[in-house]
Amino acid sequence: MDISNYIYLSALLFTIGAIGVVVRRNAIVVFMCVELMLNAANLAFVTFSRVHGNLSGQVASFFTMVVAACEVVVGLAIIVTIYRSRRSASVDDASLLKR
C-alpha cells in the first residue's frame, strides 16, 4: 500500500486550514479551518497507525476528536458572546488587547 497519497492529502488539508486561519476574518470560518487542521492531523495519525500495524495512532486520533469537540463547545460559546456584544464576528474587530 502506498501511504504517500494519504500523507500528501493530510499535508494539503493542513495547509488549506493554516492558510484559512491566517487569511480569513470571519471567526466561524477561522474556526472551521482549525477543525480542518485537526482532522488533517487525524488522517496522518490513522495512516501511520496502519503503517506500523498498532493502534497507538488511532487512540491518538480519538483523543484529538474529544479535544476538538470540547474546543467547539467553548469556542462557539465565545464567538456567540462576542457577536452579541460587538455585533461582529470578525476576528480583526476583537483586537482590544493591544490597547
Binding site: 486561519v21 476574518r25 476576528v91 480583526d92 483586537s95 493591544k98
Partner: peptide
C-alpha cells in the same frame, strides 16, 4: 509586533 490581530499571531 504586538498589534492585537489574532491572524498575525497565528501567522
Amino acid at each position: 509586533i504586538q498589534n492585537g490581530y489574532v491572524r498575525s499571531y497565528a501567522l
